[in-house]
Write a protein that binds this DNA or RNA. Structure first.
Length: 600
RNA sequence: GGGGUGGUAGCUCAAUUGGUUAGAGUACCGGCUUGUCACGCCGGUGGUUGCGGGUUCGAUUCCCGUCCGCCUCGCCA
């Protein structure tokens, strides 16, 4: 077997005159007839041209070269020389070529379903790419992503190690605690009738590691949530998970800011400035989102006070609504003329768009060149024109979009509309890295159906130090010590200071409707641990896949995972999930409720 | 669970109002080609139009069901 002396991306003019051996895949072949054949040989490092010349190569080598086809796996040995023809400036190796003296075919590629070609691959159905993932991953752009991901992992381990974190593994087979996301379950053979759950996160284990005196823990771990995927979400995903003892939220946020700043410098050479903090209520009121995209304007204005004066029935009805101490409101977005013009078709479509988020519709009006209101609800606004324009700082030519409803619905719908408008007008600038901390989340949200409070983050999140009294007096107003890191409108990390006192933890369990017995059964080990000298602690988890998505500039999470799953949770390459034998089920003490599917 | 969208040659796509033998590029096969580089030229193989049913003289096209991919709402403590 021929052994490589260089990789395909390596050869340069300085190697000319050496005998070299390259291994790789035939990227393209160009048969010039009568014994002149060019090949581009590809490995993970790049491309190098191989030439077979009748005058220099024995006939059997030319014949071998001629028989090669795309994606055959071969080795070529010969003289590396300066090109006889013109150099190819598109290739790093474009000044040289390998004159084949010997060709070893490791394996032919038969009936390729797809070519691993960056020219064509973006057009190929993802279904096919996933089925033949080994071919899709051969593409240079996919190879690059895999290696970028590796660099992120390397930097992560280096950074946290340098900050005196210890990497500690936590179990994959744990028990189900059906708060939050749906668990993946695994039947226990040794405990008939009992089930393990796969972890949604190592949350409780890392807290217990703090009780255990580890002080600084991190782990790059797989987490599993049996919920429907999205473009940026998979049921099986990776987190950079960490926890620290003897810290307040600023300590955690500082360490984490340092991490992303170092990572962006390492990966992209970008200096990320000090990451600003925004309270949750500000984020919601100004951007209609708990993960604001601050790369562009179009901020939300609250015009509730004015809206009540214009006699528009929809506004009056919205303002009369109230929930959790917040009255209904009217949120406005001013689309400046300088940002581009919204067509009638666009504004019409916005009514349907906001209905997705339970809002009734969008009220529209526009300021004409002469400063009068026109179209839409102009006649309602005209009587308060001066006040209205002043409140919004609106100029002639601007379009104003308004959403009225319950506060939650109005801000959410207006926030989504803001993103939609920015997208429609192509107003999101490229090349910006807007990091942001969102802090001061509410501890709880009220679930009308269940008639109980639910933890907004998770039930182990501590209230802010000055908020403990509110736990009892006014849970809805209680603000937590949680924090999310947001990048360009995408949540890339979340965490909190945890509750480290048993009495507080029990209070929170009670508030979210857990009885003492429930709490003991599900989380007794945590309550017990807290009782035995738990230090104050807090932590965070980064979505690794999302970090890599940002760093690689893709908005498809499947592009940054070597073997991802589809929207229905399937792996198209190995054809999972699949049926199992009755025998296996019997061993696991599981009986079928659904008939076995016929084999495909 | 809901909404949207797509499925035609190995791959990417086309096919008029429901109408002849379902076409093109690429890949593959054969021939030609000694400086190409996404080589070029000539010829060829290749189709259960996702699957099942229905309407019709006739269905890629219309209807019903179903499977699969993608986007999305719910969901994601």
């Amino acid at each position: 077997m021929l052994k490589r002396t260089h990789t395909c991306g390596e050869p340069r003019a300085t190697h000319a005159g050496n005998t070299v051996t390259l291994c790789g895949w035939v990227n393209t072949y160009r048969d010039q007839g009568k014994g002149l054949v060019f090949l581009d040989l590809r490995d993970r490092d790049g491309l190098c041209q191989v030439v077979c010349d009748l005058e220099d190569a024995p006939p059997h080598v030319v014949a071998a070269a001629r028989s090669l086809r795309r994606e055959d796996c071969i080795a070529v040995k010969g003289l590396l020389r300066k090109r006889a023809g013109d150099p190819n400036l598109k290739l790093a190796t474009g000044e040289v070529e390998l004159l084949a003296a010997e060709i070893e075919v490791f394996n032919k590629a038969i009936d390729l379903p797809i070519l691993p070609d960056d020219h064509d691959a973006p057009k190929i159905n993802e279904e096919i790419r996933l089925k033949y993932r080994y071919l899709d991953l051969r593409r240079p752009s996919m190879q690059k992503i895999l290696r970028e991901r590796h660099r992120v992992l390397q930097y992560t381990r280096q950074y946290f190690s340098s900050q005196r974190f210890t990497e500690i593994e936590t179990p994959l087979l744990i028990k189900s605690t059906p708060e939050g996301a749906r668990d993946f379950l695994v039947p226990s053979r040794l405990h008939p009738g009992d089930w393990y759950a796969l972890p949604q996160s190592p949350q409780l284990f890392k807290q217990i590691l703090m009780v255990a005196g580890c002080e600084r823990y991190f782990q790059i771990c797989r987490c599993l949530r049996d919920e429907d995927p999205r473009a940026d979400r998979q049921a099986e995903f990776s987190q950079i998970d960490l926890e620290l003892s003897f810290v307040d939220r600023s300590d955690v946020m500082d360490v984490m800011s340092g991490f992303v700043q170092g990572l962006w410098k390492e990966m992209l050479g970008v200096d990320v400035p000090t990451i600003i903090r925004m309270t949750w209520i500000d984020a919601m009121n100004r951007f209609g989102s708990d993960k604001p995209d601050t790369r562009f304007g179009l901020e939300l204005h609250d015009i509730s006070a004015l809206a009540g004066k214009c006699g528009f029935k929809v506004f009056d009805e919205a303002l009369a609504k109230s929930r959790l101490g917040k009255s209904g409101c009217v949120k406005a977005i001013v689309v400046p003329a300088s940002m581009g013009q919204l067509t009638r078709k666009m504004t019409d479509s916005y009514a349907e768009f906001v209905k997705t988020f339970k809002a009734g519709g969008v009220a529209v009006t526009k300021i004409s060149a002469t400063g009068t209101f026109e179209t839409g609800i102009a006649k309602f606004v005209e009587p308060i024109a001066a006040e209205f324009k002043a409140a919004l700082n609106a100029q002639p030519g601007d379009t104003i979009l308004m959403v009225a409803d319950h506060w939650e619905i109005a801000v959410k719908a207006a926030g989504e509309l803001r993103l939609k408008v920015a997208d429609d007008l192509k107003a999101v600038p490229a090349g910006m890295w807007n990091f942001l901390w969102v802090i001061d989340f509410p501890m709880f949200d009220f679930d009308e159906e269940g008639n109980r409070w639910v933890a907004m983050h998770h039930p182990f999140t501590s209230p802010n130090p000055d908020q403990f009294d509110l736990l009892e007096s006014d849970p809805g107003a209680c603000v937590s010590a949680g924090y999310d890191m947001v990048l360009n409108g995408s949540e890339i990390a979340g965490g909190s200071i945890r509750i480290h006192r048993t009495d507080v933890q029990e209070k929170v369990f009670k508030l979210i409707g857990l009885t003492q017995e429930d709490a003991d059964r599900k989380f007794g080990f945590l309550l017990s641990a807290l009782r035995h000298g738990a230090p104050p602690h807090g932590g965070m988890a980064f979505g690794l896949d999302r970090l890599v998505m940002h760093l690689c500039g893709t908005n498809n999470i499947r592009d940054v995972i070597a073997f991802p799953k589809t929207q229905s949770g399937g792996d198209l390459m190995i054809d999972a999930p699949g049926p199992v034998d009755d025998e296996q089920l019997k061993e696991l003490h599981v009986r079928r409720a659904v008939a076995q599917k016929a084999p495909a």
